[in-house]
Amino acid sequence: MKYPAERRFSLAVMQDIQRAFNYIPKEAMIEISEYLNIPFSQLYSMATFYKALSLEPKGKYIIKVCDGTACHIRSSMVILSELQKLLGIDAGEITRDGLFSVETVNCLGACALAPVMVINNEYHGKLTPQDLSEIIRGYRNASDESKDDLIISKEEGDGNV
């Protein structure tokens, strides 16, 4: 185990799990609470307090649509509803293939680019509803390619043995 069994590592452990799975599954929560000997209720309290932690599964690509003041007056809600149409999910939900989830945030600190959304760590600014299908397609393709890579490298690996 990377961390000693002490309560003060609760947040660090949850962050690691969040990073690895994009969310913290319930089983993991139970496991952490037992390992660190922290009451389940307190761990859950912490997990629901921090926005960076999620107890619901999230997509491979997390789309954060900014609805801060600057983005809002530049029609961020139109962007959101267009995204919802494209992906067939509401904010807070995840697509059936597990690829995308959508959420809204308050100001990404890039107001000059309003309206903005960020997908994983890439910013997309000065958005128009027309841009979206192109952007989404880009990520879909990237995901397919990375799958192909995986298959190829696996085959190569097998060949070497």
């Binding site: 009451p39 389940f40 209720s41 307190q42 859950y44 309290s45 629901t48 307090f49």
Partner: peptide, 9 residues
Amino acid sequence: CNAIATVNR
């Protein structure tokens, strides 16, 4: 017992 706590914020 620690059965309950604050949830969300």
